[in-house]
């Protein structure tokens, strides 16, 4: 009986599946512990200065790109939706459809992806560099908790910045939709804003903010985790490992944003 199992042609496949699954579970567990520890350290003394610095970097410095993307997303939404709504004779609903699409879905997702590209990659690269140049070890030798000093401010700043930038994105996007729909295509100005006011409920806005908070936690944790443990990579060392960690951070973050968006949306519906 034993030998039958041993030589089963499916065994390598199940072995591979099992190994991959264990790896994924281990990594998820490690990331979860990493987040909990870093999150708890947000509330320690002497964090305010670091958090403010990170809010400036992640939040304030990302606002231009978020506004630009928000504007063109709103404009293209205005164009596409005008075309679709005109077909069913509902062009007057343009404002509400643009606003709901942005607030419920595109605002949080695109903002998170933009911040990942701009600040998330920088978090992974910076922490990874500190790791390979022994500066994280240096912090430890100075009795400065590296996780509390480097990771916690990034997580805190992301939690603060993501919803604010999402709100900015939504606002600019709605203005973009207004520019295309009202200024260029002649939709009634009053109807545009009236429909927004009528159809956008608090629950939509709350849902969007919940999503942006979830993305903030996921993006900052994944990016910091990738940088923090860059030295444990087995596929490369040194500068190459930092570059691979940065790439992994961005790719994993974007994929996680989209997957978690579906999960959160299904809970909120």
């Amino acid at each position: 009986m034993k030998s039958a199992i041993k030589y089963s042609p499916f065994l390598p496949f199940f072995h591979w599946i099992g190994k991959r699954t264990m790896n994924v579970i281990n990594n998820l567990g490690a990331i979860a512990i990493f987040f909990v520890l870093a999150f708890l350290k947000i509330f320690r003394r002497k964090q305010l200065r670091e958090i403010i610095q990170q809010v400036f970097y992640i939040g304030a410095k990302s606002s231009n790109i978020v506004m630009l993307v928000g504007l063109f997303t709103g404009m293209v939404l205005g164009l596409q939706l005008y075309y679709t709504l005109t077909k069913v004779g509902s062009a007057g609903f343009l404002g509400s459809v643009v606003a709901l699409t942005l607030i419920r879905e595109l605002g949080p997702v695109l903002t998170a992806i933009m911040i990942t590209a701009r600040a998330g990659s920088a978090m992974a690269a910076e922490i990874g560099n500190l790791r390979i140049s022994e500066q994280i070890d240096a912090l430890y030798t100075m009795r400065i908790d590296p996780q509390g000093y480097l990771v916690s401010p990034c997580i805190a700043a992301s939690i603060i910045s993501f919803p604010l930038l999402t709100a900015l994105f939504d606002l600019i996007g709605i203005l973009g939709g207004y520019l295309t729909g009202v200024v260029l295509l002649g939709v009634d100005k009053g109807a545009y804003f009236y429909r927004i006011h009528s159809y956008v409920d608090m629950v939509d806005i709350r849902g969007g903010f919940i999503k942006s908070l979830v993305f903030a936690v996921l993006v900052s944790t994944i990016c910091c985790y990738q940088g923090y443990f860059t030295h444990l990579r087995t596929d490369s060392y040194g500068a190459r490992s930092v570059s691979l960690s940065t790439t992994s951070a961005v790719v994993f973050s974007c994929v996680t944003i989209l997957i978690s968006d579906y999960v959160v949306t299904s809970f909120l519906m």
């Binding site: 002497k46 140049s133 100075m142």
Partner: peptide
């Protein structure tokens, strides 16, 4: 501990590097 490659923080000035352990601990 004094590291072989010094492990100074590139983004901090000399003053900030030296002050770091005092500020944080």
């Amino acid at each position: 501990y004094m590291f072989q490659n010094n492990a100074l923080f590139d983004s901090m000035t000399v003053f900030e590097n030296i002050a770091l352990p005092l500020r944080q601990t």
